[in-house]
Design a protein around this nucleic acid. Structure first.
Length: 420
RNA sequence: GGCGCAUUCGUCUAGUGGCCUAGGACACCGCCCUCUCACGGCGGCGGCACGGGUUCGAAUCCCGUAUGCGCCUCCA
């Protein structure tokens, strides 16, 4: 039987990274096995539903590149099927009425057990199982009824979900058996916590996929990072592209202990991805990101500045702070220019008539100037950097000067001298 | 409280009875490279929660304790 899995978020807000990680594991498993990955919106609880959430969830999934098969479905659309089934169970004596609701009669002897792909065998004594509500008194099905039944109707073969669902599983298994359907394979993946071991919350930082996107993360960085939350192909590999992730993913290797969300490690990883892009691709993404975030900077200039910063920044959002001096005037802090007067004036002379005005020639000229003034490269170049870029930290100085052009470079050098 | 799940360097992770003197990565520290930053290279620091078993031999198996987390809703 071909593998069919699904992600079933409830439409209560943005796509949480925990849900995204679970979606990723489902997707990786499906793609690895050549099966199907479906999207189902679990909206049985209409009171918590947020109108835009369905679109936002899909948008985030698309951004991550987690494509689903077929149209997305809504749990609520099967409300009538669920109610009919609840009534059938009632008629068969497998359920009973309770204050207008319909409750399922759990077995009260023996154990309910399953072989969990990530946890191994899990057993629950049946006398601990509650008779759960199938249909509320207003007729709407509950999650613990609708979810397993939809999995049955959709032909879901593997239920891969957060381990907070482990306690629900024995009840769901009994319900599935009661309707004579086949019980799917379960794989309960660990939940994601903050570094303090507590459930991920606002004070830990970003939680929604959308927030990471806005912060300028690359989707492949996010995907790689998310994949490593509770899974590792071996003890060595950490950087993997989408295809490698698909080919190496193995559900049985998913860890059973909780996965802390390590913001620091993720920060390291993202820099590697930026550097791995081709310079054309990097420039392209920069232009797009800047456009989406309110910068109307010249695309041509952005593209030419891109190679100078690609190895320096880790997130697209760092570009404006790092290379903004190409696009607007600078206001150097006079204190950072201290003692640089002679070098600034000499640099002005050296660059005024330089031909061609290119990085290699600029470097040669400025180094000769520094030698003449008996300054170490570091002493000589720092004032120039501050004068020209407005900051003590910048892309490579000579390349920056070339791109900035003679006219702006000279006027900034002179402005700095005047300001001293 | 009941039931369930988990516990390897500061952090993530490899490890399924001998290959472990416990490997790798991030972070941190030192050195090198160097026009700043970043990258890169080299080295260092540092761990099997605790207590009992089983075994010739245990990070690995069993029991107990501790700690953490989850669920116990006519929430999902």
């Amino acid at each position: 039987m071909p593998v069919r899995v699904r992600i079933a978020p409830s439409p209560t807000g943005f796509l949480h990274i925990g849900t995204a990680r679970t979606a990723l594991f489902n997707w990786l498993y499906a793609r690895h096995e050549g099966g199907e990955f479906r999207l189902r919106i679990e909206n049985t609880d209409t009171s918590r539903e947020v109108a835009e959430a369905v679109d936002q969830i899909q948008e985030s999934l698309r951004w991550l590149g987690l494509d689903w098969d077929g149209p997305h479905t809504f749990q609520l659309d099967r409300m009538d099927d669920c109610r009919r089934l609840a009534e059938q169970l009632l008629a068969e004596g497998k359920a009973y009425e309770d204050d207008g609701a319909i409750r399922f009669r759990m077995p009260d002897e023996g154990v309910t057990a399953w072989e969990d792909v990530v946890r191994g065998r899990i057993e629950y004594p049946n006398d601990k199982l509650h008779d759960i509500v199938l249909a509320r008194s207003d007729g709407r099905p509950t999650y613990n009824f609708a979810s397993p039944m939809e999995d049955v109707w959709d032909g879901i073969t593997h239920v891969i979900r957060g381990d907070d669902h482990i306690p629900n599983t024995p009840a769901q298994i009994n319900i599935v058996r009661a309707v004579g359907a086949e019980v799917p394979v379960y794989a309960h993946v660990p939940m994601i916590f903050g570094m303090d071991g507590k459930k991920l919350s606002k004070r830990h930082g970003a939680q929604a996929v959308e927030e990471f996107r806005d912060a300028g993360y690359l989707p492949e960085t996010m995907l790689n990072f998310l994949a490593l939350l509770g899974w590792a192909p071996d003890g060595e590999t950490t950087i993997m592209g989408r295809d490698e992730l698909v080919s190496r993913f193995d559900l049985t290797r998913v860890s059973s202990s909780p996965s802390p969300f390590d913001y620091q490690k993720r920060a390291w990883m993202k820099g590697g991805y930026i550097r791995e892009l081709t310079s054309e691709e990097f420039a392209h993404r920069l232009v797009l990101w800047l456009g989406e975030h309110g910068y109307d900077w010249d695309a041509e200039l952005v593209s030419r500045a891109a190679p100078l910063v690609q190895e320096k920044i880790a997130r697209l959002a760092e570009f404006p702070g790092f290379a903004g001096f190409f696009f607007h005037e600078v206001e150097p802090d006079a204190a950072d220019l201290d003692g640089g007067g002679p070098m600034l004036a000499a640099a002005d002379d050296a660059l005024a008539g330089l031909q061609p005005f290119e990085a290699a020639e600029i470097e040669t000229a400025l180094r000769a100037t520094a030698d003449r003034l008996e300054l170490k490269p570091r002493q000589a170049f720092q004032p120039i950097r501050v004068a020209v870029t407005g900051s003590k930290i910048s892309p490579g100085l000579f390349e920056s000067i070339e791109l900035l052009g003679r006219e702006k470079t000279l006027s900034r050098l002179r402005a700095a001298v005047d300001a001293m």
